[in-house]
Structures are given as structure tokens and as C-alpha cells.
């Protein structure tokens, strides 16, 4: 790495992330929201659950960009970037999945049926299955990567695989769930949370800052992991020399 400070060492966007998150946590809980049946106060989960997926998507995009940069330059630095952004993206994806599981069990599941019966209905959700497939593809990325010992080969194969994994994201979480009937918002009716007719103005006031705050937090964690990994590699090089 060069001597000049790159974006990873700069503080302003980290401070921005913290401020936006504090804003999300206070205003997200305290400001007034539309009163809707079934959803009630759980509509506030929009500031948390949906943001996890936004953050995951942004991190995966950064990851695939770095994979392409690696394939263009064969600079191993970009390989480290791609890997760490993908890992943190997966973590946010799992968090999105877990929060979604909690949310749906109090809004979609039929309170009059035993839990098991409503589960069989809920588990057929195309969005859930799609998201699970997408995450599994990314798990496979990590397994593939870490099973190859040769550094250059590992970097090249995993960069190519990362591009395929990214391409698979679109059918699994964006296209297929939209073609099938679903309980999840955005089934057959466009973009949930982004459509201006779909989301209340009061909620947009918190939702957009929340997305930015969570995304910056994800990038922050990724940059820490990248810097640590690069330090480790440097140390290893010193020891072998």
C-alpha cells in the first residue's frame, strides 16, 4: 500500500455512518409511522431488516467490481478486497434472513394455526427460497476459495466464480420472486420500499439515511478486515524473506 492515506484510513465517512445509525435508532423508533393492519409497529423493521439486504447488495457489488479489477490487473490486493467484501456481505445477508424470519413469524404466520402448519405455507415463499439460494452460492464461493492452496490459482478461480455468483444473484433475488405470487412486498408489483407510491413520506425520512448508515457500517467492517489481511500477508512475506 502507498504512503498516502486512502479512503480506508479516512474518518469522515465512518463518523457519518455512526451519526446516521444513531439517527436511525432514535428516529426509527420514535417518529410516527403509518398505521396498517397486521404490520402495526413492526413496519419499523423497514429501517433494519430491509437495510441489511441493501447493505449486502452494495457489498456484493463492490466485491464483484474488485474481482473484475483483479482479472484486469492480476494485482493480489484486489483479490483480498473482493474476498473480504463478499464475507461481510454474507454476514449482512444472514442478518437480513434472520430478521426476516422473526418478522414474518409475527405477520405472515396464521395465529390460529399451529406453528408447523403455517411454516409449510411460509416456507414456500419464492423470496425466501431465492435468498437462501443466493446465500448458498456465496457460501460456495468461500469454500471454493479456501480449498485452493496455490495463491494465484485461488485468486483467479475465485474471481471468475465471484462474477458467476453475482450473476446468479439477479435471477434468485430480483427476478424469480417477482414472477411468482408472494406474501413478501414487491412480489408482482415493482419495487418495495423504493417506489414513491409504495412508501410513506415519513418513512422515507428515516429509511434513506438508514440505508446509507448501514451500508457505510458494512464497508467500514470490510475495510478493517482488508487492512488486517494485508498486514498479515506483509508479515508473512517478511518472515519468509
Amino acid at each position: 500500500m502507498t504512503d498516502e492515506k486512502n479512503y480506508m484510513q479516512k474518518a469522515w465517512w465512518k463518523i457519518a455512518s455512526v451519526l446516521l445509525l444513531i439517527y436511525t435508532f432514535t428516529c426509527g423508533l420514535l417518529l410516527d409511522v403509518p398505521h396498517l393492519p397486521a404490520l402495526q409497529e413492526t413496519i419499523r423493521n423497514l429501517y433494519f431488516h430491509v437495510c441489511m439486504w441493501f447493505c449486502m447488495m452494495v457489498l456484493f457489488i463492490i466485491s464483484v467490481i474488485n474481482s473484475i479489477r483483479f482479472l484486469r490487473s492480476f494485482d493480489l490486493k484486489y483479490d483480498v478486497y473482493a474476498r473480504q467484501y463478499a464475507v461481510v456481505g454474507i454476514v449482512f445477508g444472514i442478518l437480513g434472513y434472520a430478521t426476516g424470519a422473526i418478522w414474518m413469524s409475527y405477520t405472515w404466520a396464521d395465529p390460529n394455526n399451529p406453528a408447523f402448519q403455517s411454516f409449510s405455507a411460509v416456507a414456500r415463499e419464492p423470496k425466501l427460497i431465492g435468498a437462501a439460494i443466493a446465500l448458498l452460492i456465496y457460501f460456495a464461493y468461500l469454500i471454493l476459495r479456501d480449498s485452493i492452496t496455490d495463491m494465484d490459482k485461488r485468486a483467479r478461480i475465485s474471481a471468475v466464480y465471484n462474477i458467476f455468483a453475482f450473476a446468479m444473484l439477479f435471477p434468485t433475488i430480483w427476478i424469480v420472486p417477482r414472477l411468482l405470487p408472494s406474501l413478501h412486498p414487491g412480489g408482482e408489483s415493482g419495487n418495495p420500499a423504493l417506489d414513491t407510491r409504495d412508501i410513506d413520506g415519513r418513512m422515507r425520512l428515516v429509511f434513506y439515511p438508514a440505508v446509507i448508515g448501514w451500508t457505510l457500517l458494512g464497508v467500514w467492517i470490510s475495510t478493517l478486515k482488508i487492512r488486517l489481511k494485508i498486514l498479515k500477508e506483509k508479515k508473512m512475506m517478511h518472515e519468509t524473506l
Binding site: D3, L224, R227, L228, L231, K234, H238
Partner: peptide, 10 residues
């Protein structure tokens, strides 16, 4: 901590 390590290794 990482920033400090980066300075040390440089």
C-alpha cells in the same frame, strides 16, 4: 489498533 500496526510495519 490496525492503524498502529500499519505504522509499525511500514
Amino acid at each position: 489498533k490496525i492503524s498502529r500496526l500499519e505504522k509499525e510495519i511500514k
